[in-house]
Design a protein around this nucleic acid. Structure first.
Lengths: 135, 135
DNA sequence: CCTTTTAGTTGGTAATACCCACTACTTTAG
DNA sequence: CTAAAGTAGTGGGTATTACCAACTAAAAGG
């Protein structure tokens, strides 16, 4: 690890592996990675469209179609805001919650092998370091 | 970090942040994340189409179009294999190499802030742990 | 009021990525 | 040696993703 960029290199590579695992899980349920993210976000939030767009880093117009398709699958619902006639709140339907719960479990299962080569102490250290990066 | 899945949670979150950074860099050069990956892969390889598809985790037909567009931009070239009349080797053009070098530098710059909150020792530890995950 | 800003959708376009079918070349069997 | 089976890559068709620009409707500010 004398190379200065090796940390970043490894980080990028690991990230691609993580994305591949997440995509597999999503694909097994006929979802895209973005839709997986949407369900994850809505698990503990009920954002307006624009907020959801910010969370995803997408254009508002992209989110419109995304939510359309999720609604068509019965996973998500739109509710008009009472206090603001323009805005719309997006939330999970019961079916959406149920799927999101399944996905959470499957994601854990799919990702677990990535850290299984580390001992408990190292796993812990990794978690702390990653947490520090998110701060 | 008593939660068992917190490591994986943090790992997923960090991975999304990494992807966002990489996408930004790619977008600044009118490239998709996948095209960025292609350039990265070809930096030190000259794979056949099918091998490239495996590296990317994509269908061969997806890679056909991907390479088409990269060829159209003058970043990549196809060469017929001499020993096997069916297969095609993909490689970077000089322009492709030049762009790939720029991108490497920009990616480093874009990702560096992620680990800048860690001290040198922790950065090192992180690199080692991530490296162990890739083994 | 009336103008400006904000929220969201729609339309148009390009790229992504899938599956399936197809051609062309190789390899293997009989 | 030739016929069958397999492999490499492409192309068609489709759905999704994501952008921008233009639009409607509602809210806020002057």
């Amino acid at each position: 690890m004398t190379e200065p960029d090796e940390v970043l290199d490894n980080l990028a590579q690991v990230s691609f592996v993580v994305m591949a695992r997440l995509s597999e899980v999503a694909a097994a349920h006929e979802l895209s990675l973005t839709q997986l993210r949407v369900l994850g976000i809505l698990r503990d939030r009920t954002p307006k469209m624009a907020e959801l767009a910010t969370h995803l880093g997408l254009d508002r117009s992209s989110v419109s179609g995304l939510v359309d398709r999720a609604v068509r699958r019965g996973l998500v619902s739109r509710e008009a805001s009472r206090d603001d006639g323009r805005s719309v709140r997006v939330s999970l339907t019961p079916a959406g919650f149920s799927l999101a719960a399944d996905l959470t479990a499957e994601v854990s299962r799919a990702m677990a092998p990535l850290t299984s080569g580390l001992g408990a102490a190292d796993r812990n250290r990794l978690g702390v370091l990653l947490g520090r990066m998110l701060a």
